Amino acid sequence: MNERATTAEGVRRTNLAEVLRLVHHGGPRSRAVITAETGLNRSTVSDLVSSLVDAGLVREHDPDPTRRVGRPSPIVAASPDVVAIGVNPEIDAVEIGAVSLGGAVRLRARIATSDPDVAEVVDIVTRTVQEWRAGELAGCRIVGVGIAVPGLVRADDGLVRLAPHLHWNDADIAGPLRAALDTPVVVGNDASLGVRAERLFGAAHEHTDVVYLNGGASGIGGGLVLHGQLIGGEGGYAGEWGQTAASLTDAADRRADGGVLEDEVNRARLVRAAGLDAPDDAELEAALASPGDAADEAARQRRILAATLGNAVNVLNPSMIVLGGFLGSLRDLDQQGFDDEVRARALAASAEHLELASAALGADRLLIGAAEAALERLLSDPLG
């Protein structure tokens, strides 16, 4: 192949990827809109869309006849039959979701367990995906599996260096799961994948500078987007907010001498104060809203969390802070009061354009983020 042909094919692959990302991240749109957004000519867009249709990656349908003005342009939508599997192992359950192109969770399952090791997670995921392949996902194309792990994940190869609450050290989960399912597997930190999902599909969609904190049974992790780029750090370990020193404005709020943030702002403490066993986030939030020990503990944790976020605003000057999991539940008890407290803890100039939100994707955020990582190879080279 000559250099000109190679260059032309490279440009075409880039354009195919751009069109597929548009309908995946932005939703269905007409060929005319794709033409305007990409700056390509109509015939090129027609060829690209036809290739994606032939590959089963997108579908076309007629536009809404009630909105027809002039010559109608077909609507291009991501195929719901192209899916990636998102997985989130936690100390109390393994959550699994089938996420279609377009970011919709098509199926999800939560399998209760206790401190699962790698072999147990591989077994649970393998059995679930095989059942889906034979049932609800029969005829679908599964392009890969993404795993959102609450711990330090090496960016180069997905090795879980440390997931302390799961007791995983230098654990390879990608290899065994890839062998069991004969499917590509990627692994990432849960909060980093969570901020990716909220940035693409959720509360931070319009923002390029985002701080995200995720609160789960294993503790608190975080993700950071600056100038539209996900920040991973030298080894991929950036964002461990839970391991930073707790910001206490009142010494009486301390419960763990020398403890870090996740020792003080802690889901297990809330669950115990509420007298619950193994609640999901919605059940826990309902209990925290009732007067009593649970409400007092929630108020204490809100104060510490707000002070911590004030520090984050001063250091990073984000336009958006998103809170997921039980941290979102703490904020939702009194959103305006919490947001005002965060701004009061920050420099006025740094906080003047700040927005705060609870994770818009709710319980699906980590599954969508993990699936997005698994879809990246396809999105980068749709016909590769």
Rank of each mutant, 00 (worst) to 15 (best):
P63A: 08
V76I: 10
P89H: 09
G70I: 09
I96D: 04
P89T: 08
E95Y: 02
L57M: 07
P74Y: 09
R59W: 02
V58E: 00
D62F: 13
L101F: 04
S73A: 14
G97P: 01
L101W: 02
D81S: 14
N88C: 05
P65W: 02
G86I: 08
A93M: 02
P80A: 13
G56S: 08
L57W: 06
A78R: 06
G56Y: 09
G56W: 11
A93R: 14
D64K: 09
V83R: 12
D81T: 12
S100Y: 04
A55M: 11
G86M: 13
R59Y: 02
V69T: 11
V83K: 05
P74S: 09
N88P: 00
L101Q: 02
P89Y: 10
R67G: 04
A55L: 10
G97R: 15
R68H: 07
A84L: 08
P74I: 12
V76E: 01
V69E: 15
D92V: 09
P65E: 00
L57R: 06
V99P: 08
D92L: 12
A93E: 13
V99N: 06
E95A: 13
R71S: 13
E95L: 09
V99W: 08
R71Y: 09
A93C: 10
S79F: 03
L101E: 01
E95N: 08
I91Q: 04
V53Y: 01
P74T: 09
E95P: 00
D64N: 14
